[in-house]
Amino acid sequence: RSTHNEMEKNRRAHLRLCLEKLKGLVPLGPESSRHTTLSLLTKAKLHIKKLE
């Protein structure tokens, strides 16, 4: 059980790190620190579409 908890903790930490990296790559506007994961991913998707 503790192994599972540790793996889950590591998974969440990795996900958080990846989202922070994404936040640095996507133009978010003036309220960049107030975005939810969903809004960050939505803006990333729109940004990628613009680049295509």
Rank of each mutant, 00 (worst) to 15 (best):
R11S: 10
S39A: 10
P30I: 15
E8N: 14
R11I: 10
H35E: 09
N5Q: 14
L22E: 00
E52S: 15
H4K: 11
G24T: 09
H35R: 14
K43F: 06
L40P: 02
L28E: 02
H35T: 11
I48K: 01
H14Y: 11
K43Y: 03
T3H: 06
V26N: 09
A44S: 02
K21P: 00
T3D: 02
E20C: 02
G24W: 08
R34G: 09
S2M: 13
T36K: 14
S39K: 15
H14T: 10
N10W: 04
A44Y: 02
L38F: 13
A13W: 05
P30M: 11
E6W: 06
K49A: 06
T36D: 09
L40S: 03
P30W: 15
S32E: 08
I48H: 01
H47L: 15
A13E: 03
R1W: 00
R1Y: 00
I48T: 02
N10T: 09
K9F: 02
H47T: 12
A44F: 11
E6H: 12
H47P: 08
K21Y: 06
K49I: 01
S32M: 07
N10V: 08
K45Q: 01
N10A: 08
N10P: 15
C18P: 06
G29R: 14
H14A: 03
G29V: 12
E6Q: 12
R34D: 02
N5I: 10
K21V: 01
K21W: 10
L28Y: 05
P27A: 12
A44V: 09
S32Q: 08
A13R: 07
L22C: 02
K9G: 11
E20M: 04
K45G: 05
T3L: 10
G29P: 09
G29K: 09
N10F: 04
V26Q: 01
S32C: 10
T36H: 09
L28M: 10
L41V: 08
I48F: 12
E6C: 07
S2Y: 05
L38I: 11
S33V: 15
G29Q: 08
E6V: 05
S2T: 15
E20L: 05
K50F: 09
E6R: 04
S33H: 09
A44Q: 02
E20P: 05
L40N: 02
R12C: 08
E20K: 03
P27I: 05
R12N: 08
T3Q: 07
H47S: 14
E52W: 14
N5L: 11
E20D: 10
K9D: 08
C18M: 09
K23V: 03
S33R: 11
K50M: 04
C18T: 02
R34V: 08
H47R: 07
N5G: 13
S2N: 14
L51T: 04
H35K: 15
N5V: 13
S33I: 15
T37W: 14
A44D: 00
E6I: 09
R11L: 09
L22Q: 00
T37D: 04
K43G: 01
V26K: 08
K49T: 01
K23C: 02
S33P: 13
A44G: 02
H35N: 08
S39F: 04
L25F: 07
E8L: 09
L41Y: 06
G24C: 12
N10E: 06
E52A: 14
L46N: 15
A13M: 09
G24D: 06
A13D: 08
R12S: 05
E8Q: 09
K45H: 06
C18E: 00
P30V: 15
N5D: 06
K50W: 06
L22G: 00
R11Y: 10
M7D: 08
L28I: 09
L19V: 03
S39I: 00
T36W: 14
K21H: 03
L46T: 10
S39T: 13
E52T: 14
K43V: 02
E52K: 15
S39P: 05
E52M: 03
E8G: 04
H14E: 02
K23H: 01
T42N: 15
S32P: 11
S2C: 03
L22N: 00
E6N: 13
L15V: 11
R11E: 02
A44E: 00
P30Y: 11
R11N: 12
M7A: 07
L38D: 11
L25E: 00
